[in-house]
Design a protein around this nucleic acid. Structure first.
Length: 207
DNA sequence: TAAATGATGTCCT
DNA sequence: GGACATCATTTAG
């Protein structure tokens, strides 16, 4: 399953087009599973398979940061699809989202876990807690891929610093409620909008 | 201006 | 299984 030869590296260089993200958020969250999250930093190319996502569905979703109004923080979500919405939680962890739906409809997909695919070494070096699990959680993977505020609003349809490339469709996808959103209304809290590749060991552990 | 609070991870017992 | 770190953003006054 691990990809390492040069032909596979070449396949990482084509980003998914904007049209991929300009769709229903739940569909995008599902279709991102199995795709490669690709990062270029300091001349190194890093790639990891997306194995867990969550859909945040705009004004009608009380768990979505943008459900009330547009604020400076959530501005990227109101913009065109295919851009990064990066923000800080708990005063210390950066989380990566990819904006979906047409401009003005503030939706995004949170990337919750990835499986190292190319240059796992660089990911390991970027982690502070080097002996902890590498990227099976939304805050861990941003640390492993050096993703922070500097990538806020980044256009992920260009092969520049951060993008997503096509990958194999997973055999089986599992769903469940999203994590850490107790503040949301019951219907939104219970909605099965967390998706992951069934039986994949890199999926985050439920809290 | 002030106060409350997280789309979490790590370490400790 | 639980404590705690740590601060930008939001909301209230």
């Amino acid at each position: 399953m691990a990809l390492s030869d040069s032909a596979d590296v070449a396949s990482f260089s084509t980003p998914l087009p904007r049209g991929f993200y300009d769709r229903d958020t739940l569909e995008v969250a599902q279709d991102l599973l199995g795709c490669q999250l690709v990062r270029r930093v300091e001349g190194e190319l890093i790639a990891a398979t997306i194995v867990e996502t969550e859909a945040y569905r705009g004004a009608t979703d009380s768990a979505c940061h943008a459900h009330r109004r547009k604020t400076p923080r959530t501005e990227a979500m109101f913009g065109p699809p295919g851009h990064a919405y990066v923000y800080l939680v708990y005063g210390m962890h950066w989380l990566l989202n990819i904006v979906t739906q047409p401009e003005g409809n503030p939706c995004a997909v949170l990337v919750r876990a990835v499986e190292p695919c190319l240059n796992e070494d660089a990911m390991r070096r970027a982690r502070v807690a080097r002996n902890r699990e590498l990227s099976n959680g939304p805050g861990k993977l941003t640390r492993a891929l050096s993703i922070d505020k500097a990538l806020y609003g980044e256009d992920m349809t260009r092969a520049d610093k951060l993008w997503v490339a096509q990958g194999p469709t997973p055999q089986r996808v599992a769903t469940g409620p999203r994590v850490g959103i107790d503040y949301a209304s019951p219907a939104d809290r219970d909605a099965p909008w967390r998706l992951w590749i069934a039986d994949n060991p890199w999926v985050s552990k439920a809290r």
